[in-house]
């Protein structure tokens, strides 16, 4: 977001679009990246609930992968997965993993909305 001058900012420091932190990427904090093996996953949705970064997608009551734009790689999902379907992979080996197109799009949309 370009930094605005004092005449352009909402008064009193208010942030008018609650939830706009989506625009801010925290995915670069990661050292390890969680990768889910959907063949093993039982869609218990625990990881979705317990992810501190709200970075796990839910679709049709199923765990639908990661928002890698925001996942910080804490490893809680791997730790609590009851069927060991999640593996933490070093970021340097991330080429093996498909890009998070959905996450990129979400950020673009949020930024567009802010304009």
């Amino acid at each position: 977001m370009p930094e605005k001058g004092w005449r352009e900012l909402p008064i009193g420091g208010k942030i008018l679009q609650g939830g706009n932190s989506v625009e801010y990427e925290t995915g670069s904090w990661r050292t390890y990246r969680p990768v889910v093996d959907k063949a093993k996953c039982i869609n218990c949705m625990r990881c979705w609930l317990l992810c501190p970064d709200s970075a796990i997608y839910a679709e049709g009551e199923e765990m639908a992968g990661y928002d890698y734009m925001h996942c910080k790689g804490c490893g809680i999902c791997e730790e609590i997965c009851p069927v060991d379907a999640i593996e933490m992979v070093l970021e340097s080996e991330k080429d093996k993993i498909p890009a998070d197109e959905r996450g990129v799009k979400a950020i673009e949309e949020a930024r567009e909305k802010a304009k």
Binding site: W6, L9, G12, G13, K14, L16, G18
Partner: peptide
């Protein structure tokens, strides 16, 4: 932009650092 306007959830009293605090004080 009151808090009780549920249709527009507003954040009051955020953390304002070196990049914005001065502008808000100027206002």
């Amino acid at each position: 932009r009151p808090l009780l306007d549920l249709d527009h959830p507003v954040t009051y009293g955020p953390l304002d650092l070196q990049d914005y605090y001065f502008e808000h004080k100027r206002q």
